[in-house]
């Protein structure tokens, strides 16, 4: 299924134009996140309507849909980031390994350590590369220098950034390029060893080559993490995800295996969207 084109400028870069073959194991994956009747409103504005879906563990799930359809809002429900917005009200349940993160007495900070997040625009702290990567560990109480160094190397390696920065860990994170900064943010998120990684349009501010690197990274990270990615780029959803969920006006319209959904959507609305008739 996979046809690869040689890019003429740089023989090292391959541009994938077709879908990856469907994961044969997709059907048998365990449930990583279980959403039931999730509703969210900002004041009087009802943004999410009765979202119920099961996110597969150690797979990539893409959330797609036109702007304002609630996909980013849903993503931010998964680590309770919407708590920061005063007027947001959430009902329903989001279970991670059986634990409802909206249940009474939930430690939100512990939840956020289990569920890492990468944002639309890279947002490194104005500190050194090293200090950025170990920030989460430091605020978690890790003080031991060797432990921090080991964690930094491991996370940067997983984020495919180690070779580029190993000689200048004390340099400012802001001296990195945009794509490197985004990979640094991924390294920073995985340094605290979360189970789930949320990505909110992680490539929207990047050039095609940096985007390609991040996509490769996402592909390799799913061995370890359950990944949920919001994207505006349908080709990206097709390239990186195992399952895709299509949202429209705050409702989940269709959710299924990515290759099926892109070749043979069940809903007319989905078909119209992925063929570019609106959005």
């Amino acid at each position: 299924m996979t046809r690869e084109l040689q890019a003429p400028a740089d023989p090292g870069i391959r541009i994938r134009t077709e879908l990856r073959p469907a994961e044969p194991a997709a059907a048998s994956a365990a449930i990583g996140i279980e959403l039931r009747d999730v509703n969210l409103s900002y004041g009087d504005n009802h943004v999410l309507h009765d979202i119920s879906m099961d996110v597969d563990e150690k797979r990539v799930t893409a959330l797609i849909g036109p702007s304002g359809c609630g996909k980013s809002t849903l993503l931010r429900c998964l680590n309770r980031m919407n708590d920061l917005i005063e007027s947001a009200r959430t009902t329903g349940s989001v279970k991670i390994k059986g634990q409802d993160i909206y249940g009474p007495g939930t430690d939100v900070i512990a939840v956020r350590r289990r569920v890492g997040m990468v944002f639309q625009k890279s947002n490194p702290f104005p500190k050194s590369i090293f200090d950025n990567v170990v920030y989460g560990l430091r605020i978690g109480g890790v003080r031991d220098r060797t432990a921090l160094e080991a964690a930094a190397e491991k996370s940067l390696s997983l984020a495919a950034l180690w070779d580029e920065v190993k000689d200048r860990l004390q340099a400012s994170a802001l001296s990195l390029s945009g794509g490197q900064q985004q990979r640094l943010c991924i390294a920073r998120a995985i340094a605290v060893e979360p189970e789930i990684l949320l990505m909110d349009e992680p490539c929207s501010a990047l050039d095609p080559i940096a985007t390609l690197k991040i996509e490769e990274l996402i592909y390799s990270l799913k061995e370890r993490y359950t990944i949920v990615i919001v994207t505006h780029n349908l080709q990206q959803a097709a390239r990186v995800s195992d399952k895709t969920a299509f949202f429209w006006l705050g409702r989940l319209v269709e959710y299924g295996v990515t290759s099926d959904m892109f070749t043979n959507p069940r809903e007319k609305l989905t078909e119209d969207y992925i063929t570019g008739r609106f959005g």
């Binding site: 980031m81 900070i109 350590r113 890492g116 947002n123 605020i139 978690g140």
Partner: peptide, 18 residues
């Protein structure tokens, strides 16, 4: 200060003070 900076800290499990 961009909200993204605070969000980055919160997303890593920072308390409000952090």
């Amino acid at each position: 200060v961009p909200g993204a900076q605070r969000e980055a800290a919160y997303a890593l499990g920072a308390t409000r003070w952090e």
